[in-house]
């Protein structure tokens, strides 16, 4: 088996005439955290959404190249998109609690798969909430509406909801963009623990966050991957002038 969980090969994506991603080649190691960073509108979100094919909904676009998950092309005809999305979970920038109970939120994905056993659901919900560092705060009110949680809690709920799917890969699109520093720290801690079991790709909120959590990093600028490599190398001795300019805060 390849060391790489995900291989992105000359991948491109365009909305009509507008190119969002151009010729991206990038490998993601198993059980690591890859941080994709760079200025806004660099294609980070589009890449994340392409990896679990959420690009299929919303504004229509076209892709080129390949994305392989365990060596298998996720754009292959006949592929079951729903099961792909269960293997590759996504956490969005803004916390979204579905208007149902906390428990129902976490159990949502499994129930869609037809899992009905209450004990199995209960176990999964507890494990997922624990892994997302939310269990202690909500254990007594699992039946409360999820919308009553704070923003930081809702974002950890979103993570728990993805974990409950028992995915292989977790995508996080600026998961702490709307959160306070304490919630941010909790989520970052959780991520570092989670990479033992999962492969994680994150579009971090800022360069500092990338430095705190990432094993590998990739710098995206205007739809292109300028430079990719281990975080230790990319942040200390970037090869490309543009990467250095961005990291040192000269633009962005």
């Amino acid at each position: 088996m390849s060391d790489f969980k995900i291989q992105i090969e000359r991948f491109g994506y365009a909305y009509g005439n507008e190119t969002a991603l151009r010729n991206i080649t990038l490998n993601v190691r198993r059980n690591s955290i890859l941080a994709i960073f760079g200025p806004a509108r660099g294609g980070k979100t589009t890449l994340l959404r392409s990896i679990n094919r959420l690009t299929d909904i919303g504004e229509p676009g076209t892709h080129s190249g390949r994305i392989l998950l365990d060596g298998q092309d996720i754009y292959a005809p006949g592929l079951d998109v729903a099961s792909l999305r269960r293997r590759v979970g996504m956490v969005f920038a803004l916390p979204v609690a579905l208007p149902m109970s906390i428990l129902d939120n976490v159990a949502y994905g499994q129930r869609l798969r037809g899992v009905r056993s209450p004990s199995r659901i209960q176990d999964l919900v507890q494990q997922s909430l624990e892994a997302a560092a939310l269990w202690d705060e909500v254990r007594d009110r699992l039946d409360a509406p999820a919308t009553s949680l704070s923003g930081g809690q809702q974002q950890r709920l979103s993570i728990a909801r993805v974990l409950a799917l028992e995915p292989e890969v977790i995508l996080l699109d600026e998961p702490t963009a709307a959160l306070d520093p304490i919630s941010t720290a909790k989520i970052e801690e959780a991520l570092v623990t989670l990479k033992r079991q999962y492969t994680i790709i994150i579009a971090p909120h800022n360069v500092q966050q990338a430095g705190r959590v990432a094993d590998d990093t990739a710098f995206f600028l205007m739809g292109e991957c300028i430079e990719a490599g281990p975080a230790s190398q990319l942040f200390t001795v970037p090869r490309d002038q543009r990467t250095e300019d961005y990291i040192t805060g000269r633009f962005g």
Partner: peptide, 25 residues
């Protein structure tokens, strides 16, 4: 909200599952 749809699809819902569990309620 569109966000509900995205979350639902993101968790592996088929179109009808999304409609049934998120849109209609």
């Amino acid at each position: 909200p569109v966000a509900y749809r995205e979350v639902s699809y993101g968790l592996g819902a088929s179109r009808w599952q999304m409609v049934r569990t998120v849109v209609l309620p």
